[in-house]
C-alpha cells in the first residue's frame, strides 16, 4: 500500500462566446479531421463540435460533444445572461434524443470529442487551431492530486462487503465475472 502525490494533465478548451463569429470553421475542421481517410470529406453533421446559432437572438455558442444520454431532460432551464436568454441546451454537451447534435448521421451512434488525440495526436485540438476569431483557446494544466490509495481501497472493500452481506459471495463473484467479460 502506498500513499502520495501524483500529477495528471487536464486539457481545457476555453470558450469566449463574445468572440464567436458563427463561421463554423471548427465544425468544418473537426469533420474533416475525423473523416476516413483524414480530410477526405466535410460534413458538419459529423462534427464533434457544433456552434449553437440563433442569428435572430444573437446567440453563438460552440459546444463540444460530451457524453451520450438515452433520456431527455425533465424540463429545461433558461439562463438570462447579459440581457439575452439562452436555453439550457445551448450549453449542454450531451448527445441526447432531443436534438440531432453529436449523432453520427449514418449509424445513429453518438459522437464524442476526443481532443484530436488520434495517432499521432495534434498539439492542440484542430477546432482551436482554426478558430481565427480567438473564441476557442486551449490550455493544458497540470493538476497535483493527492492520491490516498489505502482510503480508496478501504472504501471499495466496505462496498463489496456490504454487497456480499446482501447477496452472498457467489452472486457477487458471478456478477464481477460477467462484468469483466463485458469490458
Amino acid at each position: 500500500m502506498r500513499a502520495g502525490n501524483s500529477a495528471k494533465t487536464v486539457k481545457e478548451i476555453r470558450i469566449d462566446i463574445e468572440k464567436c463569429t458563427g463561421c463554423r470553421a471548427c465544425e468544418m475542421a473537426c469533420s474533416a479531421f475525423h473523416a476516413k481517410p483524414r480530410y477526405s470529406s466535410v460534413n458538419p453533421a459529423r462534427s464533434r463540435i457544433r456552434v449553437v446559432t440563433d442569428e435572430i437572438n444573437d446567440e453563438y455558442v460552440p459546444v463540444r460533444a460530451g457524453n451520450h444520454t438515452r433520456t431527455e431532460c425533465d424540463g429545461r432551464h433558461f439562463y438570462q445572461l447579459n440581457g439575452k436568454q439562452y436555453g439550457e441546451c445551448s450549453f449542454c454537451r450531451a448527445a441526447c434524443p432531443s436534438r440531432d447534435f453529436f449523432i453520427e448521421p449514418d449509424s445513429g451512434l453518438p459522437l464524442k470529442c476526443d481532443m484530436c488525440e488520434d495517432e499521432p495526436p495534434l498539439a492542440e485540438p484542430l477546432c482551436v487551431t482554426v478558430c481565427q476569431p480567438g473564441c476557442l483557446t486551449y490550455e493544458e494544466r497540470r493538476l497535483e492530486a493527492e492520491i490516498n490509495e489505502p482510503e480508496e481501497r478501504e472504501a471499495m472493500e466496505n462496498g463489496l462487503q456490504s454487497l456480499v452481506n446482501q447477496h452472498g459471495i457467489e452472486a457477487v463473484i458471478d456478477n464481477l465475472k460477467r462484468l469483466s467479460k463485458g469490458q
Binding site: A25, S40, S41, R46, Q132
Partner: peptide, 26 residues
C-alpha cells in the same frame, strides 16, 4: 444536409486551405 462532401486530394487540399485560412484571418 447531413451528407459528406468529398474531395479528391484530401491532405494537399487541407494543407493549402489551412495556410490560406490563416492568411485571411491574420
Amino acid at each position: 444536409g447531413t451528407r459528406d462532401l468529398n474531395v479528391a486530394r484530401p491532405a494537399e487540399l487541407f494543407e493549402l486551405a489551412q495556410a490560406l485560412h490563416k492568411k485571411i484571418g491574420e
